[in-house]
Amino acid sequence: MFNLIIFLSLLILGYVFGRMAESRHFKSILNREEQLRDILTFNERTLPPGYEQASGELVGGNVVISIDYFKQISAGLRNLFGGRVSAYETLIERARREAILRMKQEARLKGASKIINVRLETASISKGGQDQIGSVEVYAYGTALIPTP
């Protein structure tokens, strides 16, 4: 009985705060994406025309985002039935976009206007095992092209 109460309150707390954090994060992502819109990202290695003289520098951004209790339970249930784990999709989406944004932010500080050869990598802290906190870690990196004056 006591366990059930703890479980339910964790679930509700997870849902409410998880939802709040998620919508706040998405809002901020959209906002910053708009601000950094002028920095273009590509993942080819070839230099765009006109950048032959530009200096290149490695830029990167990473982020670790954890899931909330509600998502954990929901994904666990989904694991019983199989199919698309929608609880984790937003998580990955957030992590991916946040990492790219942080990379762009670094490029902005360096005065770059384009990033080429962008790669996304996932670093792993926890594998999401039985008793571990599920989290997703994304690292985005690329070469920022800084036009020479």
Partner: peptide, 22 residues
């Protein structure tokens, strides 16, 4: 073009994939 794949690991028993390209 230039498509790359990457996997992450959040949950055991689930596959998390992303694909990206230009």
């Amino acid at each position: 073009i230039n498509i790359r794949f990457s996997t992450s690991s959040v949950a055991a028993g689930a596959a998390e994939l992303f694909a990206y390209g230009t």
